[in-house]
């Protein structure tokens, strides 16, 4: 592999991982456009590479969240039945779709993500509603408020339905799917934001693994591209988590939401 390709992949993965962690997105959302538009990697290979990067960052992040006890393991396992089913179907479907159809679908996804980011940036955070009359009780210690937060889960069937969609998008387009799961868990099921984010991140690795073997079997996994980009994304996401504690994210969210809209249009027109 030429040294220039190696450096581009490592650096691109690092930047995608850093900003992905800063913005609360998986690295894949930024990695796939970088691989396809800048490096000219075929769409299916870019998706397979992103899936590998998603497994790496999710596993590393979930290990940390499990020690902090912010993950609701039981809810995660239950919703994984839906995300894994969706991801397997997505992985199988993706291999029957052309690169241009996948690029257009990914462009639509980026557009949706940009709108969700703008919506979140405009929201004023108030007191989170906590429900105690649902199922699967959970709790975690909130470092910021210095108190133990106890909660239950409401509307599990609705969360399962959204999880099938999240898993399907993950398998089809190589992203984590947290953009669907986190709002569903928080808004529909009444799970505190920290627990919803940690539980979604915990689930993403298994969801991605569900389609990874299908991409591998179809020969879309290039060892040089996947290894280099995954290592870059992994290092970048670790850096992003550290930096995120020190910077104010709202302006960054706006800039990246507008950038994603631009990338979305460029991918659509390709």
């Amino acid at each position: 592999m030429p040294i220039i390709s190696f450096i581009s992949l490592l650096l691109g993965g690092f930047i995608a991982g850093t900003f992905g962690a800063l913005l609360g997105l998986g690295g894949g959302v930024l990695l796939i456009p970088f691989l396809v538009i800048i490096l000219g990697v075929p769409m299916h290979q870019a998706i397979a590479t992103s899936i590998i990067a998603v497994i790496a960052t999710s596993s590393a992040g979930a290990a940390m969240n499990l020690e902090r006890r912010t993950v609701h393991i039981r809810l995660g396992m239950l919703l994984e039945i839906a995300t894994v089913t969706g991801a397997i179907l997505g992985g199988i479907t993706a291999n029957y779709l052309s690169a241009s159809v996948l690029a257009k679908l990914f462009s639509g996804l980026l557009f949706l993500i940009a709108l969700v980011m703008i919506w979140r940036a405009r929201q004023h955070r108030g007191q989170e509603p906590i429900y105690t009359d649902g199922a699967l009780p959970g709790s975690f210690y909130d470092d910021a408020d210095r108190k133990t937060v106890q909660y239950t889960v409401k509307k599990i069937p609705a969360a399962l339905l959204v999880s099938i969609v999240a898993g399907n998008v993950s398998g089809l387009l190589g992203v984590g799917g947290g953009i669907f799961k986190v709002p569903a868990m928080h808004i529909l099921s009444g799970i505190p934001m920290k627990a919803a984010t940690a539980t979604s991140n915990f689930m993403i690795g298994v969801t991605a693994a569900a389609s990874a073997f299908i991409y591998f079997a179809h020969g879309h996994l290039n060892p040089f591209i996947a290894s280099t980009a995954a290592l870059g994304v992994l290092a970048g996401s670790m850096t992003g988590v550290r930096v995120s504690r020190r910077i104010h994210g709202n302006m960054l969210t706006w800039i990246f939401a507008l950038a994603l809209l631009g990338i979305s249009i460029q991918l659509y027109l390709r």
């Binding site: 590998i52 497994i55 790496a56 999710s58 596993s59 979930a62 393991i73 396992m77 994984e80 690795g205 298994v206 991605a208 693994a209 990874a212 073997f213 591998f216 996994l221 060892p223 040089f224 996947a226 290894s227 995954a230």
Partner: peptide
């Protein structure tokens, strides 16, 4: 080198499955 890289990628793909077995 190629076998080592593929081994790393496949081991990574099996990691979440090991996590489910642990659960």
């Amino acid at each position: 080198p190629v076998t080592l890289m593929f081994a790393g990628l496949v081991f990574l793909m099996f990691t979440p499955i090991l996590r489910v077995i642990t659960a």
